[in-house]
Amino acid sequence: MNCERAAEWMPEYLEGSLGQDETKLIEGHLETCADCRQLVTLAKNISVLPEEKPSLALRANFQAVLDAYEEGRTERARLSEGRPRLAGWGLGWLVSPIAGMALTAALLVLGFVGGRYLNNEGNAHSQQELAAMQTELSGMRQLMVLSMLQEESASERLQGVSWSTRQQQADPKILDALLHTLRYDSSVDVRLAALDALSHHGDQAQVRRELAQELSAQESPLVQVELIDLLVEWHDRSVVDQLHKIEQDSTSDPAVRQRAHWAVGQLS
């Protein structure tokens, strides 16, 4: 056997799928040919290169993504069922220490006002107090969301974004913070989550305006694609020109250009 024939059989030989007879022949050749032998040795050595271990943080971070995803899913399911808001507050809150603190504070307020409420059952005054409690709770939630969006760890920020979706009423401060997160957050995961949260507020003119602007400013192709999908979903024709530009721009990500092309077709 010569090297040429050996080269023909080599891929199957290395994969271990060569027939017995051929294997014998090629091995006979390997005994006499140092060049081919070296090739086989190197190929086999690649497969036993030491395996490196990723850090434990990698798994933990991904778990945070999955949790946020699950939470978002149950949240959406709950919203679409239209059940009362308080019922959906799961134990996921307790995952974060800050969340734990917030929950404790909320329970204190609830206990205090609730106690007063029971004492003055049916009283118009208590209705006011209940309303005040609601406002306080929502204020506290706003505070938590805003502070969590500032956290250093991406998973805390993700949690913050996911909390923001508990607020059915659009809070301007939270919307601002989410838009800021969408543009400047260092983690693409957090940006995507922020976009997802913002997508519930398509009825807000400001949100639509800002998201349309974001189309050209956004650096992450993944977020851009998602943004394009959302704008198409909202039938926002004002962005067609921008989409055209992205489509023509040879420096843009190919997937984004392709999506922009598709979106132009959908919108015009």
Binding site: P54, L58, V65, L66, Y69, V188, L222
Partner: peptide
């Protein structure tokens, strides 16, 4: 990148 791959799989 590993994180990114799984995020894309999810998306």
């Amino acid at each position: 990148l590993v994180q990114e791959v799984f995020l894309r799989i999810l998306k």
